[in-house]
Design a protein around this nucleic acid. Structure first.
Length: 574
RNA sequence: CGGAGCGUAGCUCAGCCUGGCUAGAGCACUUGGUUUGGGACCAAGACGUCGCAGGUUCAAAUCCUGUCGCUCCGACCA
C-alpha cells in the first residue's frame, strides 16, 4: 500500500482519553478512532492486524477439527428465556443490549452465542452417530459495559472468536476441551504472546471447569496467582492458597468484650489489643439476593466474593450498606461479629478462621471487640469453606512453593459447559441403547480485537509499536527518502513492486516528507522491518534494512532485499 | 450504581473565577521560497453555530437551569 493513499494519519499529540500505552499508540498510529464510548472504527492498519489474528485463529481452530460458521448478532429474547439467562443478562447484570422492535418483539445483541448455537445443534443432532460436533465463528459481539475503558481492551462492541463443542458424554468433552486447549496454546505462541494459562472461575456462562489464557501485562485487569515452584496458576478470583499455621494458646481464656474506640481496620486493632493480626477476624456482611450472609475471614485475609457467590449459588452478592449493618448488628460499621446476629443471618467462615484458640472478632456493639473467642464454647461452628482471596506470599495449594502474583489480560477463555444449556434447551440425542441423553457441551472464546490491544500493550517502546511479523499489518515499511531524485523514485518504485511480487506485505512511504518525519512515523506504526532507500544508499547500489526492534541497520543489495527481509522475519524474531 | 471532571479550529489546549469591541496559541492543513538521513525555517493564507436548549443581562465562550456527549475515580471497607 502506498502511504500517500493510506487512510489513517499519524498524530503527534497523545489523545487525551487514552489511558494505556496501547490505546495511545494505536490512536496516534492511525490504527483506530473512537466513534462513541467503547465503540471504535478499525482503520485499515488495525483491520489488517485483526484479519491476521483471525486467520491464525481460524487455521488453528480448523486444524483442531472445528468448522467455521456465522450466527446472527441479533437474537430473539425467547431463546435466552429458554436457557434461563435473560433476566440475569438484562436485568441483574445488565450487560446485554436489548430492545423492542416495531412489532413489539424483544431482541438483543448477542454478547455470546450459547443459546443460538444450541438451537442450531438441537435441530441437527438426533443420534449419537451425529456426535461429536465442533463449530466456531469470528464475529462482532456486544456488551453494554457500564464503563468501557482502555480502548479495545474493554469495549462495548468487539470482535470475538467463539467455538462450541458437542459431545455424547463427559469423556468426549474431555477430548474436545483438550483439543481446544492445545489450539489456544498454539494460537498464543504463533502470535508471540508472553502469556500464561490459568484456572478460572466460569462466572455467568456456567459450567464445571475452565481455563483462561492471560497475556502478562501490568495494565491487565485480572490478577493471576501462580506458584514459584510447581505449575499451579489460577485467576485470583478462583485461586486457592494455604496459610502458615501458628502456634496456639494451650488453654482457652474467658471471652470478654474490650473497648477499643474508633479502631477500624485490623492493623491498628491488633496493635491496640497486643495480639497478632492473624488472631483478629473480619466479619463482612453481604446481601445475597434477598438473604443476608455474614462471612468471616482471618484478619490478615480478605473475602473472595466470587467464592462466596459460588458457594451460595446466589445471583447477586453485595456488601450490605452501613444502615443495613446497623440494623442487623446494632453497631456502626466496623464492629460486626458472628456472635449475637439475628438467626436469619447465615454465617460462613473461611477454613483458616477455624483452628484458632482465643481469637478476636467484632462484638456487634460500637467500639467493642470480643477477645479470647473460641468456637464451640462462645458460638456454634459456622459453615466452613474456602472463602479467602489467595495472595502473593501464601503457600501453594498443591506444593510447598510460595504463590506469586502478576497482572494479566484475559485473551482467551475455555469452558466445560456440561449439560447446562443442552438440558435447558432440550438439545438431546438417542444413545446406542435408544435412550434420550443431553448433549455435553464446551465453549471456547478468544477476544480477537482485545488480542491486538494486548499485543501492543506487551510490545512497544517509547517510539511506538513493535509488531511481530505474524500479526503486523504489513511486514515491511519501505521508506523512500529524497523522492525528488529521479533515481531514488525509480528504484523505490521498482523495489516496491519487487517485494510485492515476492509475496511480502509492503507499506510504501512514498510521501514527499523529510526523513525525520518518515522515520518517526515508521517507528510509531511499528512494522517489523524497515527498508530505507535514499540517494546515500543508492550510491552503493544498496538499500538499508533494519528491524524495528534493533538499533543497528545493514546495507543490502537491492536484488537481495526481499530475500533478506524473509530471512529476518523468519527466524528468532522475538 | 455512587462520586468527580471535561466539552472552545482536524489534534492538544489557553481564555471562563472577575460578562464588554474582529475568540486565541502550538501542532496539522493550503500557497510560495529556502532546506533535505531522525518530526526544519521564512512569508502569506484557509479553518469556529465556543456541545445543545432555555434563562439572567444593554451585553454571555464567560453567570444560572436543563439536556446530551465524553472521561476519570470508587466499586473491597469491618
Amino acid at each position: 500500500m502506498r502511504q500517500s493513499r493510506h487512510l489513517g494519519k499519524t498524530l503527534r499529540e497523545v489523545p487525551k482519553d487514552a489511558q494505556t500505552a496501547a490505546h495511545a499508540l494505536m490512536v496516534r498510529g492511525g490504527y483506530m478512532q473512537q466513534l462513541s464510548a467503547g465503540v471504535y472504527n478499525y482503520l485499515p492498519l488495525l483491520y489488517r492486524t485483526l484479519n491476521k489474528i483471525s486467520q491464525i485463529v481460524r487455521e488453528e481452530m480448523q486444524a483442531a477439527g472445528s468448522e467455521e460458521l456465522l450466527m446472527p448478532a441479533l437474537q430473539p429474547r425467547e431463546l435466552w428465556e429458554e436457557s434461563g439467562r435473560w433476566e440475569r443478562y438484562t436485568a441483574v447484570d445488565g450487560i446485554m443490549f436489548s430492545f423492542k422492535d416495531r412489532r413489539g418483539s424483544v431482541s438483543c445483541l448477542g454478547p455470546t452465542h450459547e443459546e443460538v448455537v444450541t438451537d442450531i445443534l438441537r435441530r441437527e443432532i438426533k443420534s449419537y452417530k451425529d456426535l461429536p460436533r465442533n463449530v466456531f465463528q469470528i464475529q462482532t459481539k456486544f456488551r453494554d459495559e457500564i464503563r468501557p475503558r482502555f480502548g479495545l481492551m474493554r469495549a462495548r462492541e468487539f470482535i470475538m472468536k467463539d467455538a462450541y463443542s458437542f459431545d455424547a458424554d463427559e469423556a468426549g468433552l474431555e477430548v474436545s476441551y483438550e483439543a481446544m486447549r492445545q489450539a489456544y496454546h498454539k494460537i498464543c505462541q504463533r502470535i508471540g504472546f508472553k502469556y500464561r494459562a490459568v484456572e478460572a472461575d466460569s462466572g455467568a456462562i456456567g459450567g464445571t471447569g475452565s481455563q483462561e489464557f492471560m497475556v502478562l501485562a501490568d495494565t491487565g485487569e485480572d490478577t493471576i496467582i501462580y506458584c514459584d515452584h510447581c505449575d499451579y496458576a489460577a485467576n485470583q478470583e478462583r485461586a486457592a492458597s494455604r496459610l502458615a499455621e501458628h502456634a496456639q494458646d494451650a488453654e482457652p481464656k474467658p471471652m470478654e468484650a474490650v473497648l477499643g474506640e474508633g479502631l477500624i481496620g485490623v492493623e491498628p486493632l491488633a496493635k491496640f489489643l497486643n495480639i497478632p493480626v492473624w488472631k483478629t477476624t473480619k466479619t463482612l456482611v453481604f446481601e445475597a439476593d434477598d438473604r443476608v450472609v455474614a462471612v468471616m475471614v482471618r484478619g490478615d485475609c480478605d473475602v473472595n466474593e466470587i467464592k462466596v457467590t459460588n458457594h451460595l449459588g446466589c445471583k447477586s452478592l453485595k456488601l450490605a450498606s452501613a444502615a443495613k449493618i446497623k440494623e442487623l448488628t446494632g453497631a456502626e460499621l466496623g464492629y460486626a461479629g458472628p456472635i449475637g446476629l439475628p438467626p436469619s443471618v447465615r454465617i460462613l467462615a473461611d477454613n483458616y478462621v477455624n483452628g484458632r484458640v482465643n481469637f478476636e472478632c467484632g462484638a456487634n456493639q460500637t467500639n467493642y471487640h470480643n477477645i479470647n473467642v473460641n468456637f464451640g464454647r462462645d458460638l456454634p461452628l459456622p459453615e466452613f469453606g474456602e472463602f479467602k482471596i489467595a495472595k502473593a506470599g501464601h503457600t501453594c495449594p498443591k506444593c510447598q512453593g510460595t504463590l506469586q502474583s502478576a497482572m494479566g489480560i484475559e485473551v482467551g477463555h475455555i469452558f466445560k459447559l456440561g449439560t447446562k444449556y443442552s438440558k435447558a434447551m432440550a438439545c438431546v440425542y438417542l444413545d446406542a441403547g435408544g435412550k434420550s441423553q443431553p448433549v455435553v457441551m464446551g465453549c471456547y472464546g478468544i477476544g480477537v480485537s482485545r488480542m491486538a490491544a494486548a499485543f501492543v500493550e506487551q510490545n512497544h517502546d517509547d517510539k511506538g509499536i513493535t509488531w511481530s511479523p505474524e500479526i503486523a499489518p504489513y511486514q515491511v515499511h519501505l521508506v523512500a527518502l529524497n523522492l525528488e531524485d529521479e533515481t531514488v523514485r525509480k528504484q523505490s518504485e521498482q523495489l516496491y513492486a519487487q517485494l510485492q511480487q515476492e509475496g511480502i506485505d509492503v507499506l510504501y512511504d512514498d510521501r514527499p516528507l523529510r526523513a525525520g518525519e518518515k522515520f518517526s512515523d515508521a517507528d510509531l506504526i511499528g512494522l517489523p522491518t524497515r527498508i530505507t532507500v535514499s540517494k546515500r544508499t543508492l550510491e552503493q547500489q544498496k538499500v538499508e534494512l533494519k528491524r524495528r526492534r534493533d538499533t543497528a541497520a545493514e546495507l543490502v543489495a537491492i536484488a537481495e532485499a526481499g530475500a533478506k527481509v524473509k530471512e529476518l522475519l523468519g527466524k528468532n524474531f522475538r
